[in-house]
Amino acid sequence: MTKPGKAVCVSQAVVLQRMLPQDANPAGNVHGGVILKCIDTAGSIAAMRHCRTAVVTASFDRMDFLKPAFIGEVVIFKASVNYAGRTSMEIGVRVEAEDLITGEIRHTGSAYLTYVALDQDRHPTPVPELILETAEDCRRNREARARREVRLAEKHRERASQNEATAC
């Protein structure tokens, strides 16, 4: 059963989090694990807005930490659906840090996550088609499809390797 399509802009999520001393790592920056948790939260909001069902994080495909975020800053997590398959979605999350005193905003990281939509019995369920409206939507979708092909090929290679009886 295919659900009606939804535009990328309908499900976008922006989550802001002020980083406090308990969010620090030993170097005094915001701990990467805190950033990852917030990314997953923002990503799940965008995924649930798209499919309007419960979702589960299937994979954290990639995380690029570009610059540190500092204690006292507001970290902004911008999540969008890049690709919608049959029951899964790739969500891209852009992470920015804002210095509240100067107003400077820095791109500090980007991540790609895959979520699977779940029905009431917690089984995978179809998601709406993704309607691409802008050139940016199309670019992100094209890149997400390429990442999906790489993920599937890697999963196939891993399974084949696990099934080889003579492998070390």
Rank of each mutant, 00 (worst) to 15 (best):
Met1Gln: 09
Gln12Pro: 00
Arg159Cys: 04
Leu132Cys: 05
Ile91Val: 15
Phe70Tyr: 07
Val74Ile: 15
Met48Gly: 15
Asp61Met: 12
Leu16Tyr: 12
Arg86Gly: 10
Leu113Met: 14
Val15Trp: 07
Arg148Phe: 05
Lys78Pro: 01
Tyr83His: 08
Thr102Phe: 14
His107Leu: 14
Cys168Pro: 03
Glu104Tyr: 11
Phe60Trp: 10
Asn25Thr: 06
Tyr115Asn: 06
Thr166His: 15
Val10Asp: 11
Val34Glu: 11
Asp119Glu: 12
Val8Leu: 15
Lys155Val: 08
Asp137Met: 12
Gln162Ser: 02
Pro21Gly: 06
Val150Leu: 07
Arg49Glu: 07
Gln162Lys: 10
Arg140Trp: 11
Leu132Asn: 09
Asp99Thr: 01
Ser161Trp: 08
Ala111Leu: 13
Gly5His: 10
Glu129Asp: 10
Val81Trp: 14
Pro126Ile: 04
Lys6Asp: 06
Arg151Phe: 08
Glu73His: 09
Val30Trp: 03
Val116Phe: 04
Arg94Phe: 07
Met19Gln: 12
Gln12Thr: 03
Gln162Pro: 00
Leu132Lys: 02
Asn25Lys: 03
Val55Lys: 14
Arg62Glu: 15
Glu96Gly: 00
Ile101Met: 02
Ser110Asp: 07
Cys9Phe: 13
Phe60Gly: 00
Ser161Gln: 08
Ser44Ala: 06
Ala165Cys: 00
Cys138Lys: 14
Arg94Met: 13
Met19Phe: 06
Met89Gln: 07
Ile76Phe: 09
Ser80Glu: 14
Gly33Asn: 11
Asn163Glu: 15
Val34Asn: 03
Asp40Phe: 02
Pro68Gly: 04
Cys38Gly: 08
Gly85Pro: 03
Arg86Trp: 03
Asp61Glu: 14
Arg147Met: 07
Cys138Leu: 11
Asp137Thr: 04
Gly28Lys: 07
